[in-house]
């Protein structure tokens, strides 16, 4: 934490960046995002296990962009988000400095290549608990799964916190907001909720960087990240690609191979 604070002070003092986007202590033992613009205030920065939010989401917020060049306190998921945003031409090289955190150390990563290398060196499989969580649902029968999700989605408020919290949901006008004709129903009734959640998952397929913020943001605790997880695995096992690993190249669903599997096609 001290390393982080002194690095932040240095970056601000030398005017290398204008703002450090990091974590500060928040309410109820939670951490919250903080935007430090003066070296003197760098002591507000913290980093511990409560710091889970993917701060890369703030790159798409105009008010934050206006603050100038930013250094971002980046969890592994945030680093992946940066790479994915770069691959989708949302961040240009040199527009930001990533401060990779983990343990007591802080590693400044100025280029996409450096971020790619950093991510690659620490890339791993899901934890046993994460795998188990997914398997728990897959082990259910089809009907049981259907009922599970019907109940979950019946609680959805359509507050779009999942969308707001997602660093990859950066569209200025979402499909749900296209209303001539109204494509996804606005009302938060059962059908509207199902269609919204299917659409959200589909539009993130091959792009989701697996930070889990959608599930964490949900005020009614729908495990939304599971949908994304399931598709991450599908994309990886079938197409062999994982998003958020490279600042270049196409997403799994905006490209193809002529010999992609098609055993399900008659």
């Amino acid at each position: 934490m001290q390393a982080l604070r002194s690095k932040a002070r240095e970056l601000l003092a030398t005017k290398t960046v204008q703002v450090i986007i990091g974590y500060a202590s928040g309410g109820g033992g939670r951490a919250r995002a903080v935007f430090v613009r003066e070296a003197a205030k760098a002591d507000a920065l913290v980093f511990d296990d409560s710091c889970q939010q993917n701060l890369a989401v703030y790159f798409s917020k105009p008010e934050v962009r206006k603050l100038g060049k930013a250094a971002l306190v980046a969890t592994p998921a945030a680093l992946r988000a940066i790479l994915q945003l770069a691959a989708e031409n949302q961040i240009a090289e040199g527009e930001l400095l990533a401060l990779a955190v983990g343990g007591d150390d802080v590693v400044p990563l100025a280029t996409f290549a450096a971020i790619e290398a950093h991510v690659a060196a620490r890339d791993g499989d899901w934890s046993a608990a994460e795998k188990e969580e997914l398997q728990k649902y897959e082990a259910m029968g089809l009907e049981e799964r259907r009922r599970f999700w019907e109940e979950q989605f019946s609680r959805c408020l359509k507050c779009y916190a999942c969308r707001a919290a997602c660093p990859l949901c950066y569209c200025t006008r979402c499909t749900v907001e296209c209303n001539q004709p109204q494509w996804i129903p606005v009302p938060a009734h059962d059908l509207g909720n199902l269609e919204w959640n299917v659409m959200r998952a589909m539009h993130l397929a091959g792009r989701c960087v697996d930070c889990g913020d959608c599930g964490r943001a949900c005020p009614v605790n729908i495990p939304l990240h599971l949908l994304n997880r399931r598709l991450i695995r599908e994309v990886f096992t079938v197409f062999g690609s994982r998003s958020g690993r490279s600042a270049k190249g196409d997403n799994a669903l905006s490209t193809f191979k002529p010999n992609d599997p098609e055993d399900f096609i008659q």
Binding site: R32, A33, V34, F35, V57, Y58, K61, E63, V64, L157, K158, C159, Y160, A161, R163, A164, A165, Q182, P185, V186, P187, A217, P219
Partner: peptide
């Protein structure tokens, strides 16, 4: 106001859990 709301992401969670928020939309379906 910018300072106050820097970390706000603009979702509707606050309004939807609020006991007094009464904004509504009309949809024909």
């Amino acid at each position: 106001w910018v300072e106050q709301s820097l970390r706000c992401l603009g979702c509707g969670a606050c309004a939807y859990v609020c006991p007094t928020c009464a904004c509504f939309d009309i949809q024909d379906e």
